[in-house]
Design a protein around this nucleic acid. Structure first.
Length: 553
DNA sequence: GCCGTTTTCGGCCCGACTGTTTTCAGTCG
């Protein structure tokens, strides 16, 4: 079945081909449509069936027609025609680091070079030496780009945010320790809490940019300095992640933070609004003619455009700017709203003192309750439960304002084993990739309160994730959002929100300090526009999970 | 190719950095 991701890639390919053919504005139009299609929470098929393709930002009549062709036949005649005009290798050259459409086209048209292999041969034969615009340094860069492409076909992949998070934290800590910095922020898709990040954009204010760059370049994680100027340095880490470090002056910090947080489409929309008001927005501030009218803080920047400040997680040009103009930006759930955790997973071998440690951490955070997994079915379908001593430790707990729930995790088909656990409070359904739909459960005996570890990031499981959301709604259960390849991603958190299914945010109670689970899960929920009332383990108010849980039994 | 209470035609973000230049083009984000 054709997927949105495939359609988006197809339009990106069309954009590349148009680039090489020398088109001016069409490539960006196709890329914009591709970005919009990628962030849809619904299959194109459904949108098309309603006749609403034209409502997708960046999709007009021409691209809508191509989407319909693609859905019906799996191909787009226009794309097939373009592919016949351009040798496939020319597009590969276009995708080399540091090379763009102009250069790829020149190689193709002027020198008859139709692929990376021919380009390498041409360099070896010295054919580029006499070509205008190609000095020794540039030829060397092309040689390096060819080698990099051979080493990593398809280019550097985006990194899951839970992998990038600890790296980012380490770099920021090291920069703070080793040079005098006033402010440090990580911008980009990291700050917007996308599931994956392409690079890290770090902004700092400092009187001594040179020293900051020296410090940064000398960090053990840094494998290569790609470029360095007066305000910006780009490095590649040994794990392949690219990091851009920018030094900005304090009066422009808010403007730079706004600018480099993006998203691109959000910024384009802001600049359009600015232009309509006779203003200009760039990374140095908001300007009326020569005068800077805002820039020190992000709040100033948005206010100067008549907008309320917009949380980074919402900046995807999906209606958040209109909401900010009308004062209807939602008050998103925050860490301080969390009042407990429904899904804390002690290790199978946990002792009574391990349990005590978990619970005292919960008390330190002023949580009202903790749901402890005390047994269930493992991934290999074998039953497990906590040791009797640990289970015994749970009896008689619950004083001092902390309520402890005992819960069981189901197997992939929803089944629960018989376990020596007295009156469990609820079950956590734990789908896996091989379980296409919720199976029979003992929900008549134990209510299912949570769907956890739901995978939904990839196209083939999209429909199964939707079925789990439906199941959650029918069972009055919440759906857990969190990082990791087997977890529910933020697009699916939006699907749950649209279906009026509550989210649950894992708090990392069972992990050590510095664990990225909580900030990332919180970010995913916020990307879905979740307010405290939409999150089952956030309070206060009549929607408090504690009340829901106790009244439901 | 898209888009619009300035426009249904004529715009389309803009600045840093690099290399090859003698004033700028290409790429990137």
């Amino acid at each position: 079945m054709p997927s949105n991701a495939e359609a988006a890639e197809l339009f990106r390919n069309i954009a590349d081909l148009l680039d090489v053919l020398g088109e001016r504005f069409k490539p960006e139009a196709y890329r914009r449509a591709a970005r919009s299609i990628e962030t849809l929470t619904e299959d194109l098929e459904r949108v098309s069936a309603r006749g609403e393709l034209g409502t997708i930002p960046g999709v007009g009549e021409a691209i809508a027609e191509k989407i319909r062709e693609y859905l019906q036949t799996g191909t787009i005649p226009y794309y097939e025609r373009l592919k016949k005009e351009v040798p496939p290798g020319v597009v590969e050259i276009l995708r080399l680091q540091g090379l763009g459409p102009k250069t790829a086209r020149r190689f193709w048209v002027e020198l008859g070079i139709e692929g990376p292999g021919e380009l390498a041969d041409a360099i070896a034969a010295g054919r580029l030496d006499s070509v205008k615009g190609f000095g020794p340094r540039k030829i060397e860069l092309i040689r390096e780009a060819l080698a990099a492409a051979r080493a990593a076909p398809g280019g550097a992949a985006r990194m899951p945010i839970d992998q990038a998070y600890p790296v980012a934290e380490r770099i920021v800590r090291a920069l703070r320790e080793r040079s005098r910095l006033d402010r440090v922020e990580i911008a980009g898709s990291f700050r917007r809490r996308r599931e994956t990040v392409g690079d890290l954009d770090i902004l700092v204010t400092s009187e001594e940019p040179e020293k900051v760059f020296d410090t940064f370049s000398a960090l053990p994680e840094v494998a290569e300095v790609r470029l360095r100027g007066g305000t910006k340095e780009t490095c590649i880490l040994s794990n392949g992640l690219q990091v851009d470090l920018r030094v900005v002056e304090p009066g422009a910090f808010g403007a730079a933070l706004q600018y480099f947080t993006g998203s691109k489409d959000h910024n384009v929309q802001l600049r359009t609004i600015a232009r309509d008001r006779g203003l200009k927005v760039n990374e140095y501030g908001v300007f009326r003619d020569e005068e800077r009218v805002a820039g020190r803080t992000e709040e100033d920047v948005y206010a100067s455009l008549g907008l309320a400040w917009i949380p980074p997680e919402l900046r995807e040009n999906r209606g958040e700017i209109e909401a900010a103009a009308h004062g209807t930006t939602p008050l998103l759930v925050g860490e301080s709203d969390l009042v407990g955790d429904l899904h804390v997973h002690p290790p199978e071998s946990a002792t009574a003192s391990d349990i005590d440690r978990l619970l005292s951490e919960a008390q330190r955070r002023n949580y009202a309750y903790v749901g402890l997994v005390v047994g269930g079915l493992r991934g290999d379908d074998r039953a497990w439960s906590l040791a009797p001593s640990a289970l015994a430790r749970l009896d008689g707990l619950g004083a001092k304002g902390l309520r402890v729930f005992r819960c069981l995790e189901t197997g992939p088909d929803g089944s629960l084993p018989s376990l020596p656990v007295r009156s469990p409070d609820y079950a956590i359904a734990r789908p896996t990739r091989r379980s296409g739909a919720p199976g029979a459960s003992r929900s008549d005996e134990i209510p299912v309160r949570l769907i956890a570890h739901l995978s939904g990031g990839n196209a083939e499981s999209a429909e199964s994730a939707r079925r789990w959301v439906d199941f959650a709604r029918a069972a009055s259960a919440a759906v857990e959002v969190g990082p990791g390849p087997e977890r529910f991603d933020s697009n699916w958190a939006r699907v749950a929100r649209e279906a009026k299914v509550r989210l649950a945010i894992p708090t990392g109670l069972d992990a050590g300090p510095g664990d990225p689970c909580l900030p990332i899960a919180l970010g995913f929920a916020r990307r879905a526009g979740a307010q405290a009332a939409d999150v089952v383990n956030a309070g206060p108010g009549p929607t408090s999970p504690r009340r829901r849980l106790t009244s439901g039994r």
